[in-house]
Design a protein around this nucleic acid. Structure first.
Lengths: 350, 350
DNA sequence: ATGGCGATTTATAACGATATAAACGCAGTC
DNA sequence: GACTGCGTTTATATCGTTATAAATCGCCAT
């Protein structure tokens, strides 16, 4: 159905074109349908909501009329009246350079929101203000029906605030709070554990891991998995000092280059991110060290990037797109009504 | 100011707590301020709009009261009344795997929208429906005040539709339409031209370029820049057949691997994307060809990725974050009022 | 006929903001 | 004292939707 058809329908429906400018396209509303069918606006509204008090025949007639003129409810009006926004807010730190991290998640989220009335609004969180500000803002001003955020901390104030106010949300990552809360997380313990075992199996004698910043819960998970593996094997290890996965990639490379020139340097590296893995490779290359022989590497893979990286690097995959999908689905479920918390938790395994 | 303070203010303002549940936080509205100041709702509205008919003293008093209770206008109500949505819609194809492409642009966009009342809404366009659908939908249902989209085509129907309806938009990339339209674009002609010259200067004897899909305008620009350079130098060349920058990276690598095993293979490659550049490197590696000696490469860089890639690769930078910033600024300017089209065009130079 | 009942439809008010036109108070003028 | 004009404030209506209560209808029992 073309735009022109719709205009025609709109005009035909209005018997008295009083103030209507010729050719002006007027958006169909409930009133339009009411005039078409000779019913009251209220009836049309109820009919479209499929209320059982409205005669079945009327409901069908109304639905048909609505379809004919391509009626879509006005979101602003619905929102004003009902208080529901039909918006899911994704809080993103636009300074995060994390390669494709957000993109993958957005892909999964939009997939989950497909064919629902929900829109995805990206709410930036600029790091010069407290993390909790956008959350408070969204809650206080009813900017969304649900919130999604990432980079969860052990005693994350955002989680506390949202739980206290019973506001629907899903976060990427877990807290260490006593009360259970909704989340989608990746098993970073398992990642680090498996990565360490792979390196050991391949013959590495001393392991090193570059961790996320300490303030994030998943840094602890990774460390724990790493420590468990090295302790089990009684192998040498160290944890990269002064740099994290959030450091500028040049800084990571500089650190590694420096470290590789020192005695007792590790020969097995674990990287929780693709860019830092490339930095390891660059540092080794600049030292003339052979990857897979002098130095070994296991990286977390979140995109197709490492399929093209040579020499080939062992990777463990984290599906961020699926994480987004899960977060979207769980959030919609939570918004629809009260759900036991454990049904709103998902852990992606290695 | 804490949430509790706000509640207190809210209650203090209401002299008769009739239906108000104790402790329930009620969002401040114009009415709240009206009751606080003893003015009419209309006056408060006009005062906050800084209308000159309202006495300066009143304006100040109202503004102070608003600040005190942390008043923020209800977007749904404003939208319903004024028809303005305060929303910028970014149309994204969530199936695009383009690494960080969207993220960079979103970063720039959110920066441009910062401290404005505008929100960024990501509108997915699933490739199983016509490209124009989301545009039409946004226009017909007034879902946004302005639209941003990417991957512009020579006679892009989206541009036509938006121009016909005088709807504010900026697209990333240009059309070849007769009528000028707003855009932000990167000089891909210059990119390909410079890339070719770099390769020739480095001693390459036969050049190859991997182009974007033909339907996008920037594919033509790239080809043109490429052809101009090779013609000027009278050097051998070819254009990758059967694969584009949108192909799966494995397919690109397979194509290149195959090509590198044939006679008269190019020894200089131009890649308009980071993943495809890695694919070139992988193919060369798998053949045992030395990069920078047997095979040369110039890549377009849109992230910090290639700073860590070894051996070092010559790159030309495209600032997508800046593109997003520009698009945001220009769109806001356009929304604010009519602007000559040439003031809404920006070309990022190489 | 009268009342009551179930099934269906409708009128009214409200959400929170703003555009429009009207009203108000107070000066100065005739 | 009535009139005009100015600066300021306010009442009213409206955007499109929906929750609530009220109204209408036919039909059956009284």
């Amino acid at each position: 159905m073309s735009l022109e058809d719709l205009e025609d329908e709109g005009r035909r429906a209005k018997p008295e074109p009083v103030t209507e400018r010729a050719g002006a396209y007027t958006k169909p509303t409930l009133k339009t349908i009411a005039e078409m069918t000779g019913l009251a606006v209220t009836t049309v509204s109820r009919a479209l909501a499929d209320a059982p008090q409205i005669a079945l025949e009327t409901r069908l007639r109304v639905r048909q009329a609505a379809e004919q003129i391509g009626y879509l409810p006005d979101r602003a009006a619905q929102r004003l009246r009902t208080g529901r926004t039909n918006v899911i807010s994704l809080i993103l730190d636009p300074h995060e350079e994390i390669l494709g991290y957000a993109t993958s998640m957005i892909r999964g989220l939009t997939e989950a929101l497909r064919r629902t009335p929900y829109h995805l609004v990206v709410t930036p969180h600029f790091s010069d203000t407290p993390q909790i500000d956008p959350v408070r803002h969204i809650m206080r001003n009813r900017m969304a029906d649900g919130i999604i955020f990432t980079r969860t901390e052990p005693s994350d104030p955002r989680v506390k605030l949202l739980m206290e106010n019973n506001f629907p949300f899903i976060c990427h990552g877990r807290t260490e709070l006593a009360t259970a809360h909704p989340y989608v997380d990746y098993d970073n313990y398992g990642f680090a554990y498996q990565a360490a075992r792979k390196l050991i199996d391949a013959g590495a004698k001393k392991l090193s891991i570059i961790l996320p910043p300490e303030r994030f819960t998943f840094a602890h998970h990774m460390r724990h998995g790493f420590m468990t593996a090295v302790r089990e094997e009684g192998i040498g290890f160290e944890i990269a000092r002064g740099v994290t996965l959030d450091s500028k990639s040049d800084d990571i490379r500089d650190y590694l280059y420096h470290r590789m020139g020192e005695p007792e340097c590790p020969d097995g590296f674990i990287c929780g991110g693709e860019v830092s893995a490339l930095a390891v490779m660059a540092a080794a290359y600049d030292h003339g060290l052979a990857l897979g022989k002098d130095v070994r590497l296991v990286a977390k893979q979140t995109s197709g990037l490492f399929d093209q990286v040579r020499p080939r690097v062992e990777t463990i995959y984290e599906d961020l797109s699926e994480a987004g999908l899960l977060m979207g689905r769980l959030l919609l479920k939570r918004i629809a009504g009260p759900v036991p918390v454990h049904e709103l938790q998902a852990l992606q395994t290695v």
